[in-house]
Structures are given as structure tokens and as C-alpha cells.
Design a protein around this nucleic acid. Structure first.
Lengths: 163, 163
DNA sequence: CAATGTTATATATCAAGTTATAGACTTATG
DNA sequence: CATAAGTCTATAACTTGATATATAACATTG
């Protein structure tokens, strides 16, 4: 069966990148599920942002993640519910709400940085290894490789190779 | 403000590709809005699939687009509502419902192929022109270029260059 | 050939993004 | 200094993807 998005090339590049991104996220989720993590893969970037940049107001968090503010408001509400982040009003400006990692969130991030993220990063790096040339060709190669060996298998192998 | 997804590299490649895809779709939508098209940019791949492959049952349509079947069922219902596709039960197998372009759908696709898609394709090709090297670098270049000159501006220019 | 299993589609629910807008607070100005 | 304008966050409504499951039609088999 012809892959129409691939055939259409640049015309549907947006749909195609979205599709690849979704598959990567879903595969990553599988890896996390096996490790008994209780949050969605899509929440990690927010936690990583707080880890890298320290406490941030909602708007700057959205900007640093490159998403719209309401999405961050919702994610923050969810993570606060789980006890992974804390939200405090800013002292200088009562409109701003400063988001920071809670103790549990700190622990989760530290564990992820040590035990989980390296494996995922290696798996994705493996997936993209030795790619070069035009973008569309690289995307096709990624799709083919993912179909041949899903990410969670690569994560296992990668973990063996990089202890 | 640091772009966290970019800093995290392979670890968040899925989120990042999704983000780029969404921006491309949104920008494409802007181009279409200006041209008074009444459907969403995300529906075009389905119409293009029917155009390329002819009438197809729902499942094969999903497969050719690389998305899950319920998404196609929903899109088809929407496009049928708009009168752009028709759905008929298969004769051999009463479970299958064959989707095809209606007369209006045919006309829309023909018009799009003639007047609209080339401009979009050129704009995206322009966006990706002269890219080479590692994937992450190309993605960063695309993000930078999109930020500098949004797609709808490129579409205008591309149309002038390629009559 | 009835019962069981399989397949195709529809439906329900969820997730995570979007835009538009409202409400609270801050800043600027006449 | 009161009011107007602006900024920050939350909420509502929508989009578009996903998975899980129900239903209906077909296929197989004891």
C-alpha cells in the first residue's frame, strides 16, 4: 500500500513530521511503561525545562517549550495534582505563578536523568545514526527503521551497549 | 529564553517533530484561509489519497495515510457532510465501506492541484532548500527559518517565482 | 450448518495541542 | 490618582491524533 504522505513529499511535510513525532512519543511511552513510570512521556519536557532552567512562571515555561500557554497551564495542573511540581505566586507580580519541581518531582527527574533518559536518548540516536542528505530522505529512513525495529527494542540494545 | 526541546536533542525528538509539524500545518492553514478554502489543511492528505489511489475502503485509506482507523472514520464523516466524498458499501463484503471523491470533491482536488498545492509545495521546498547534514541541525535550521519568514510569506514569493 | 473466531467499521473516551476570550493584576497617563 | 491600556494566567471550545471496545458481517470448522 502506497504511503501517500511520503509520495506527496514537501506538500504534506507537516502531517508527516507530526506522524513521526507521534510514533516516537508512543514508542517512548512503551519504554516508560515497562519501567513503571507513572507519568506520560509528553510531560517530561516540562520537567526537564524546570530542571534545566529552575523555577519559572507559566508564560516563560511555555516559551521555553515552544508551546502555547494554555497547554502549559493544563500540564502544570496535572503535574501539581500528582505532586511533582509546586506553584507559588510571584512576590513582585501577583499575576505570575511560579512553577517549580517539588521534592518528589526533583527525585523523579534525578532518577530519570540517571536511569531512563540516557537509554531513550541512545535509542533515538541509534535510530538517527549515520543519516545524511536531504530531509525527506532522512525522514523516510527513520520511518523505515522504526518499522523494522521499534524504539523500545533499540532502547534495550542501547542500554547494553552503553552501561 | 533557551529552547529546551532543542537543547535536549535526541531525547525529545518526538515532541520536537510534532511541534514543527504542527507549526507547518498551522502556517499552511493560513495560506488556505487567504484563498477562501472551506476545509482544514489536515483534510487534504485524505483527499489526495483518494485522488492518487482511487476509491478505497476506510481501513486501506487509514493504512495509506499512516494513521489509525478511527481518525479516518471521523474525517470521512466530516468530508461526507461537506459533500466532498461519498461512501458506498462494498458489493463483495458488506462490512467494507468504500470512500470515493464526489463530484464536488473531484473539482476541489483538481483546483487545489492546479492553483494551491504547487504554491505550498514550493514554499515548503524553499523552507528546506539547501539543507544537509545531521537531522538535528536541519530541524534547527527549519525552526530558525520559519521564525524568520513564515510559510505564508514564502508561499507568496514562491508563487511569483514559479508561475 | 451452528458455533466460534476473525475482520471492518463505528463509537466512546482520552490526550495534548490550538485559538479566543475573560478576569485579575500591573503599568502608564491625562 | 483615577482611569485606560497592557500583561499574565485560566477557562472554554475546538482539532486531531490515540486506544479500547462494541457491532455487524464474513470465514472456518467440528
Amino acid at each position: 500500500m502506497e504511503d501517500v504522505l511520503r509520495s506527496l513529499g514537501f506538500l504534506c511535510l507537516g502531517s508527516r513530521m507530526k506522524r513521526i513525532g507521534e510514533q516516537l512519543q508512543a514508542d517512548t511511552q512503551r519504554v516508560l511503561d515497562r519501567l513503571d513510570m507513572r507519568i506520560q512521556s509528553s510531560q517530561y519536557p516540562l520537567l526537564a525545562a524546570l530542571d534545566r532552567l529552575g523555577p519559572l512562571p507559566v508564560g516563560e515555561l511555555a516559551q521555553s517549550l515552544g508551546v502555547a500557554q494554555p497547554g502549559v497551564t493544563r500540564s502544570v495542573a496535572l503535574l501539581a495534582e500528582l505532586g511533582l511540581v509546586e506553584v507559588n505566586p510571584s512576590e513582585e507580580d501577583q499575576r505570575r505563578r511560579i512553577v517549580s519541581l517539588s521534592r518528589d518531582g526533583r527525585r523523579l527527574v534525578d532518577q530519570a536523568k540517571r536511569d531512563i533518559w540516557p537509554g531513550i536518548e541512545n535509542a533515538v540516536a541509534d535510530l538517527c545514526a549515520d543519516l545524511s542528505g536531504p530531509l525527506l530522505g532522512q525522514l523516510a529512513a527513520i520511518e523505515d527503521r522504526l518499522a523494522a525495529t521499534p524504539l523500545h527494542r533499540r532502547a534495550e540494545n542501547a542500554r547494553v551497549v552503553a552501561p
